[in-house]
Computed example of a mutant assay.
Amino acid sequence: MPNKLISLAEAVRRFSWDGMQYASGAALPIGSDAIVFGRELLRQKRKDLHAIFHCSGQQLNLLAAAGAATKAECGFAALEVVGFANGLRRAVESGRLALEDYSNLAMTLRLLGGALNWPFVPATVNIGSDLQYRSAFSPDEFPARSKIPSVTDPFSGREIGAFSPLRPDVAAIHVTLADPNGNSILLGTEWSRFELSRAAKKVVVIADALVDPACIRQYPNLVRIPDILVEAVVYWPFAAWPHSSPGMYDMDEEHTFFMNKALASEQGTADYIRDFVESYSDLDSYLDLIGREKIKTLSASGSSFLLDPYRRWIFAPEDVASLTAQGLST
């Protein structure tokens, strides 16, 4: 079976570089995000990243705390009940990271503009406020003229704003299910992963489970990311941990609080990277790090029924290993 399966380490080696525009899909503690890809970026010492997150969560928090991201654009920068993202706060307040702020809707529209290859996106939100007038990328300019410049609607004569479209170099997108070629089904809220997959120049999908292509043929209408958009597929259960993945596992609330507390200081960040980024060598040791009993608990989710229609097509880990050996890694 021809396929695009690749190891996580190889995906980061092949599809990332210092200084790139890097985007990831979904966020918030309850939103699926390819956090394990961000961990691997740190393991491979990537730096000067320009991070693009519709709604930031623990991945941007970690990349900012570690100093790997020096620019970021996002529409929300908190962790809900967990509190503000401490690593991101430290990076911004110290001047190590410039954070350009937009609304959630603005980020969605900018990704849509990138997906449709628009020269700019008409903006009727964020205008007339500091979201338009203040720019972290041009801090000495007020009002900022390059962030959301004014344009005239040629039909009505009304003055509106113009968003720049987003076309990130690489997007690592967490998906619930993928076949070996990258056709992907997303369970739960999407957080613009649909638009991101079409806006990014290269897409790597990180799947909690791998399914037989027969599953895709059974539910073609549910495929939100088709294989034609995908460069590579990484199989990595609990890729969104400590975030949740609807149908698969709940948010690890205990670790989310622990992680955010650790990222509040330089020493705590160094300790966290030592213990939870650099300490595992493969998928099995990663799952051991989370804890097998905790995995059982988190997997006993109230949303598990969402996976029921697809269970018959999910590949066992040994089948995935065999397929990966035949994939892009070779």
Rank of each mutant, 00 (worst) to 15 (best):
T330F: 15
R14L: 11
S329F: 10
T70F: 11
F76I: 12
G19E: 04
V82K: 04
L283D: 08
L222P: 04
T176Q: 06
L131G: 01
L328H: 07
D169W: 08
D18Q: 10
F258Y: 09
R96W: 11
T256V: 11
T152Q: 14
P168C: 06
F238I: 04
V36W: 01
F76E: 05
A106K: 08
P165Y: 04
T269I: 00
S150A: 07
G188P: 01
L229G: 11
P2K: 06
V125D: 07
V233S: 05
P165C: 12
V234K: 02
I216C: 13
K71M: 12
A26N: 13
F258N: 03
A207K: 02
I52C: 04
Y249H: 14
E10Q: 08
E254P: 07
G247Q: 04
F37G: 06
T330L: 13
L306H: 09
A240Q: 13
Y272C: 05
I228N: 14
A209C: 09
A325H: 13
L5N: 02
S281R: 15
F155R: 13
K294R: 14
E253T: 15
N221P: 01
L97D: 04
K4D: 07
K294S: 08
L109Q: 02
R145G: 10
S94H: 05
V230K: 00
P213E: 04
R89C: 11
L263W: 07
I228Q: 13
A321W: 13
P139Q: 12
D275S: 09
L287R: 10
S285G: 05
Y22L: 10
W191D: 01
R158H: 09
R217S: 14
S56P: 04
D179V: 04
V233D: 00
L186Y: 04
S192W: 06
D140P: 05
P242G: 06
V203W: 00
P226M: 05
A85N: 11
E253A: 12
G95L: 01
E195A: 12
Y272Q: 02
W191F: 15
